[in-house]
Structures are given as structure tokens and as C-alpha cells.
């Protein structure tokens, strides 16, 4: 038996919105530690690694590890039937061919449940090496979304150049070129508005804006995003999943393979 109850159900709705445009289907691997999902997009350019920690749920029971194969578009549609303030419970029997979602209104005067068929997925699992990145950039998630959206006007790719002075995002195309430079925040009152660069070595890498724009769908989960880069390895874009009190409930990490000069 697997059962997980999340009082702040909107978090699960936001998690689904952050992956449903990038992935068609994926397995939720449920264990005592929590619910994990790892999957590549169909072009094998990007990888999503997602964790919802068991102690982030108000109630969590997982008698034995199970893998729930899910059509993510279907799950997203079902979760749209939950109100933002609903409590969401996910339930699956061992060896079941279906998963149940229960939505309770805060006053408990409306309870709905939806059963969804599970899929048999033969998913490939990749080992993500522990990496000491040359640069880690933290910035407001809304700022990163805006940069990706704005530079998409100019081209398909963004060159991210991180030095001790700050970060520069550049794009060029038929109509011209654009650059956005962010300086490190000297002193900010609010931590979530800060731009912080932790640099060991300067890095310049090129990435597809189409994928970065998919990643920014996770911005409602977190006020801050971190970009971790080293030469010639995939970029890691991380959004921490925090509840209203700011406690960590897990993360959504996206890995994006760089564009390499021929």
C-alpha cells in the first residue's frame, strides 16, 4: 500500500505543471524516502530529476517500494480538477493497475476522488555523477524566466558567460543580437531577490532556449533558481520545492546538454 497526503496540494499541481510540457510519461518511484521521478525528454537532450521527500507530506505510508508508470498529461489534467487550497492524497495498492487521487476542500465539505490507469513503462535510469561545478549562479526565478523569454525573441540559443564580475546572457539571430548582464547583488534586504555567483573558474556555455523555457515552468515552485555550470557538462537548473513556511519538501532539477561548436 502506498499513500501520501499533502495538505498544501497546490504544490503537487505546480510540480506537474513544471514537467508536463517536457515529458510525456514517467515513473514515480515511491520508497520510504519519498517520491522520485527521473526521465529524459523524447529527444534525449534534457533530463528531469524530481524529489518529493516523505517528511514533506503530512501523512506518508509506503509498505514497499513501487514504481508508478504515469501518463503525465493525464495526471496533470486530473490535478487541474483540484482547487488550489485542496488537500491532495495519492493512493495505490501494491500491484495495482490504477492510482487514486483524492481532493478534500479545506473545510472537508467537498471530497472528490479520481482513479487513473497506470502504465507499464520500461524506463531507462541514468546515473547522475556528483559534480563540483565551476560556477553556481543563484537568482530570482522570475528574473531567469524573463531572460529566457526575452532572448527567445532573438534566437534559438543563449550563451551564458559567468565571470567574477557577474553573468552575461547573450543571443543572436537574423534580426540582431541582445545581451543581459546581471551583477552580483551587493546587499539586498530580501534573500529571494539576490543574484549570487559562486565561481571557481569562469565558464561560457551555449544552451537551447526552447528547453530553458520549458524549465522555467517550475518558477511558481520557488522564488529562487540556481544554475550550475562547468565546461562541457550539462547545465543543472534547480528549483527547490518549499512550502508556505519555507521548509524544504524536495526539488525539481533539470539537466540540459550543451550545444557544442562543430
Amino acid at each position: 500500500m502506498f499513500e501520501a497526503r499533502l495538505v498544501e496540494g497546490s504544490l503537487l499541481k505546480k510540480v506537474m505543471e513544471s514537467i508536463k510540457d517536457l515529458l510525456n510519461e514517467a515513473s514515480w518511484d515511491c520508497s520510504g524516502n519519498g517520491m522520485c521521478l527521473q526521465a529524459m525528454d523524447s529527444s534525449h537532450v534534457a533530463l528531469v530529476s524530481l524529489m518529493l521527500k516523505s517528511d514533506g507530506f503530512e501523512n506518508y505510508r509506503c509498505d514497499r517500494s513501487i514504481s508508478l508508470g504515469i501518463n503525465l498529461a493525464s495526471m496533470s489534467k486530473i490535478l487541474k480538477c483540484a482547487s488550489n487550497d485542496d488537500i491532495i492524497t495519492i493512493r495505490a495498492e501494491d500491484d495495482a493497475d490504477a492510482i487514486t487521487f483524492m481532493f478534500e476542500s479545506p473545510k472537508q465539505d467537498r471530497v472528490s476522488d479520481y482513479e487513473m490507469k497506470l502504465m507499464n513503462l520500461d524506463t531507462e535510469h541514468l546515473g547522475i555523477p556528483d559534480t563540483e561545478y565551476a560556477c553556481v549562479i543563484k537568482m530570482p526565478s522570475g528574473e531567469f524566466s524573463r531572460i529566457c523569454r526575452d532572448l527567445s525573441v532573438l534566437g534559438d540559443s543563449v550563451i551564458i558567460c559567468c565571470t567574477k564580475d557577474g553573468v552575461r546572457f547573450s543571443a543572436k539571430g537574423d534580426l540582431g543580437n541582445g545581451n543581459i548582464k546581471l551583477a552580483q547583488s551587493a546587499n539586498v534586504d530580501k534573500e529571494e531577490e539576490a543574484v549570487v555567483v559562486d565561481m571557481r573558474e569562469a565558464v561560457t556555455l551555449t544552451f537551447s532556449l526552447r528547453y530553458l523555457n520549458f524549465f522555467t515552468k517550475a518558477a511558481p515552485l520557488s522564488s529562487q533558481v540556481s544554475l550550475s555550470m562547468s565546461e562541457d557538462v550539462p547545465l543543472m537548473v534547480e528549483y527547490k520545492i518549499n512550502d508556505k513556511e519555507g521548509d524544504s519538501k524536495g526539488y525539481v532539477r533539470y539537466y540540459l546538454a550543451p550545444k557544442i561548436e562543430d
Binding site: 537532450v45 533530463l47 557538462v233
Partner: peptide
């Protein structure tokens, strides 16, 4: 012109 690499060129299958 830069070409897009694949994630499986960097991470191994487990």
C-alpha cells in the same frame, strides 16, 4: 554553428 549534444553522452545508463 553549434550542434546540440545529448544528455546520454554525459550520463551513463544505470
Amino acid at each position: 554553428r553549434a550542434s546540440q549534444s545529448k544528455i546520454i553522452e554525459f550520463f551513463c545508463s544505470e
